[in-house]
Amino acid sequence: MSVEPEVPIVQVEEVRENPVLYKIISSDNHVFTISEHAVKLSKTLWDLITNLGLTAENALDNPIPVENVNGKNMETIVQFCERHKYDEEEPEYTNYIREFVLPEWDRQLLSIDNEELFQLILATNYLDIQKLMDYCCRVIGDMAKDKTPEELRIIYGIPTDAEDDALERSASDSPGPSG
């Protein structure tokens, strides 16, 4: 039962120094504008920008197509990056990711349907945004807290071995493309 998130809309910040803006086009042709500081949070996008040689002058004239991410997820990602663009760099959480506390704003942002959250993680993984990945995974990890094995199976949709086997059998029994 997921309530629609009440996430404040984050406008691209036009303050501090004169920001360089970039345009991104999602797979469903939505166009987003994102500042240079924000886009740097995505290693994939920043590498792309660097490799394409985009500059302050030609950035807005050359939108970057991102075919693996739809508009809904891109909107969330842009909001997140704009929100966190001036954050100090944090140590990479490897074994001790459990230690950090998820800020309330981000928790609200990530209070979305499980399927949407899953797609968001795939998008985040593709765009290589470390911090958003940590936060998303924290939300998924929190789902497991104090649950029994039986509850975990339901929450994470893990089929039993017998069901897995049956699924494989039915996949192998089904006729191929040629019929």
């Binding site: 039962m1 997921s2 959480y93 490897t94 074994n95 990711i97 459990r98 349907d113 499980n114 399927e115 959250l117 899953f118 993680i121 795939l122 985040t124 993984n125 990945m133 940590d134 998303c136 995974c137 924290r138 998924i140 990890g141 929190d142 789902m143 497991a144 807290k145 339901i154 929450i155 994470y156 949709g157 893990i158």
Partner: peptide
């Protein structure tokens, strides 16, 4: 609530999730 398809995650996020759970 609809289940979260945990085991369909790519390896990196999957490991990050495991990092988050006890």
């Amino acid at each position: 609530s609809k289940p979260f398809p945990l085991l369909r995650l790519p390896r990196l996020p999957l490991f990050k999730v495991f990092n988050c759970i006890g």
